[in-house]
Design a protein around this nucleic acid. Structure first.
Length: 276
DNA sequence: GTCCAGGATCGGA
DNA sequence: TCCGATCATGGA
């Protein structure tokens, strides 16, 4: 018989400059919200978490040691030394150094591959508040209830049996048929996300783009946020703007093995500093 | 009313 | 291969 695991607060001494607000609000995830008491709450891998920062500590509230070891430690990418990553990125040039200094507390969240794929299909030609709304409705209508008012992200096989009109409730427009195509191909095994995760990146890109509604940008986001491929470098309208204005002499490949993290710092910088 | 949002697809040059 | 129109929806 399975007994309840002991829940408790888990305190982490802040490694690097880990900043919750920047990490959750930099456009890589859509299921974390700030609470009245200046914490954040969200769901990942079917687990709810409330997390907060107090001076020199990050506090994971009411969680268990197992969940920390099995889920959150990886999810928050706690094994990677971001001070080292930043020191490498700063070698690129002075502009990159300045941008690293702007929001050095961002970490790449190691999200579930299917959730990342599905979320970024929804993100196309869309804005972040509406993306969050659509994903909320997706979870409330087709996920299962984890606890009061908290829902899981529906799995591919849970969506694969639906038809187009079932998704009308999401109000996601032309993206419905893309979500269903992805769900069918992933649940049938025609597209195997676990295999793609380990492929050479060019082949991985091609495989993901076999799904309708998945082009270069969505594939790149899936690789970076859902498959921890830090060399992936998503180029959206903001990044194109930044590459023109700031890095006109550079290409994605010039940012090295941590290009994805560089991209995240650049994206956050240009999106929160847009002028003229 | 027009424009835009972490784009992709389609048809026609 | 490249380019413009189009795709739903909602907020500014």
């Amino acid at each position: 018989m399975k007994h309840n695991s002991i829940t408790n607060n888990i305190e982490l001494n802040i490694v690097d400059k880990f900043n919750l607000e920047d990490t959750f609000n930099c456009g890589q995830c859509f299921r974390w919200e700030k609470t009245d008491d200046n914490s954040f709450e969200g769901v990942a891998f079917d687990k709810y978490l409330k997390i907060t920062k107090k001076t020199d500590k990050i506090i994971l509230m009411n969680t268990s040691k197992e969940d920390f070891e099995n889920v959150w430690k990886d999810y928050f990418d706690l094994s990677l030394n971001y001070n080292y990553v930043i020191s490498e990125l700063e070698k690129i040039n002075d502009k990159m150094k300045k941008i690293c200094n702007y929001s050095p507390g961002i970490r790449i969240l190691k999200q579930d591959p299917w959730e990342a794929l599905c979320s970024f299909i929804i993100s196309q030609n869309n804005n972040i508040p509406r993306i969050k709304g659509i994903i909320n409705r997706l979870c409330e209508n087709f996920g299962y209830q984890i606890s009061n008012g908290v829902y899981s992200f529906p799995k591919a096989n849970e969506l694969s049996t639906l038809n187009d009109s079932d998704l009308d409730i999401l109000k996601c427009g032309f993206r419905s048929k893309y979500i269903l195509d992805a769900a069918k191909k992933v649940s049938s095994g025609e597209i195997n996300l676990n295999n793609i995760k380990k492929m050479k990146i060019d082949l991985a890109r091609k495989e993901l783009q076999k799904i309708k509604g998945v082009g270069p940008k969505v594939a790149e986001c899936t690789l970076l946020y859902g498959m921890y491929r830090l060399e992936a470098f998503p180029m959206d309208v903001w990044m194109k703007r930044a590459m023109e204005k700031i890095f006109s002499d550079m290409k994605a490949e010039d940012f090295g093995q941590y290009a994805g993290i560089a991209q995240q710092y650049i994206f956050n910088y240009i999106r929160t500093n847009f002028e003229s």
